[in-house]
Each structure stands twice: as structure tokens, then as C-alpha cells.
Design a protein around this nucleic acid. Structure first.
Length: 181
DNA sequence: GCCAACGTTGGC
DNA sequence: GCCAACGTTGGC
């Protein structure tokens, strides 16, 4: 079999190399994240009903970049209830799909509409997440603070308000245990 | 509802 | 590129 040179080869290389890179990333040890949602807006129970949802509405570049550039399918997620009484981690979810343009940025009726974004040049991306489980015991922010092993978590740092943030695997395992899983 | 800590915007 | 003003987040 002969392979024609030129475009097809280039296309072949362009397709295979990123895939290989992405595969390499996905074969690294599991990545973990904490994602905040206000339960009045979208709770873990709602995700349990929906099973999957696109994490739309994030309008912060650092949070977007984690979703867009680092999250891989199968990454674990701590589902955090913010602006709640009490605030804390309600359970687990998993990354279902790699980031895609956040549709709400194009929707004039959405609160997350962004007049500076266009379909040619989307500004905001989000991943799709899948429900995994609800903790047997809700882990409040105070519970997290009370655990010295968790003191380095981003969510516990002063002034931290990043709504999508990385979590160390060891912290993830501790919290999973605390939650009764 | 308060407000500290951030992030973004825009004039210069 | 600085930085003041403004808007937002989110615990309390």
C-alpha cells in the first residue's frame, strides 16, 4: 500500500500527535478537582436527577483554563455547595466530556451572555460532568478546616474564591473517607 | 446584609 | 503597564 504525501500526511500527523499527547496526559494518575455550585442554583441532588450537565456559566479565566486545558475524562470532582448553610462538599462527580464552548455565552437571554464572545471566537468553555455519589456525611467547610491534613487545600486559603480548583489526590482520598465512601 | 478579598475594566 | 474604581464571590 502506498501513502500519498502532502495534505493527507499532514492531516494524519496533525491528528495523531495531539491524540497521543492527550492520551499521555490521560494516562497520568487521576486528577482531582473541586467545583463550586450554589445549591439554590444547581445542587448535587439536581445533578443526580439530570445525571450529566455542562458546567456552564463560569466567567473566570483561571477556572475556565482548568476546564479547558487540564481536565480529562474520568477526572474526579468534589461537588462543593457554596453560599449554602452550611457550605461544604456534598458528594462526588466525574468529568464526562472534555471542554466545549459554553453555549450560554451566545444566549442573549442568559445571565451568562457575553456580548464579546462569538461562535467563531468563543471565549468561555466548560466540561460536562456526571453524577457519581452523595456523601453519607456532608463535609462542611468547618469540617475541612478542622482537619490539619487538609490545610493546604485551595478552598481553605484566605480569600480563595476560585470556583474550579485542583485538589491533591491525597486530600481527595481523605475527604472521600470523611464522607463515608 | 455586611464586607474582605479578588478579578476586571478602562483612563492615562 | 499602572492603578483606581467598580463588580463579584462567598463566608459569616
Amino acid at each position: 500500500m502506498t501513502r500519498r504525501l502532502g495534505q493527507p500526511l499532514r492531516r494524519c500527523v496533525d491528528e495523531i500527535i495531539p491524540r497521543a499527547v492527550s492520551l499521555k496526559v490521560s494516562m497520568k494518575k487521576t486528577q482531582c478537582w473541586l467545583m463550586k455550585s450554589e445549591p439554590d442554583v444547581y445542587s448535587l441532588n439536581q445533578l443526580k436527577r439530570d445525571q450529566t450537565t455542562w458546567w456552564s456559566g463560569v466567567r473566570n479565566y483561571q477556572a475556565r483554563n482548568y476546564m479547558m486545558k487540564e481536565m480529562r475524562i474520568g477526572d474526579q470532582i468534589l461537588f462543593y455547595h457554596s453560599n449554602a448553610e452550611p457550605p461544604g462538599i456534598a458528594g462526588l462527580a466525574v468529568v464526562e466530556s472534555l471542554a466545549a464552548p459554553d453555549k450560554t455565552q451566545f444566549d442573549k437571554k442568559s445571565e451568562s451572555f457575553d456580548p464579546q464572545a462569538s461562535k467563531d471566537k468563543p471565549r468561555w468553555y466548560c466540561v460536562e460532568v456526571r453524577f457519581n455519589s452523595i456523601f453519607k456525611k456532608f463535609i462542611s467547610l468547618q469540617d475541612l478546616r478542622d482537619c490539619p491534613d487538609l490545610k493546604d487545600m485551595v478552598v481553605l486559603q484566605k480569600g480563595s474564591r476560585l470556583s474550579v480548583q485542583p485538589v491533591d489526590l491525597k486530600h481527595f482520598e481523605i475527604i472521600k473517607k470523611m464522607g463515608g465512601l
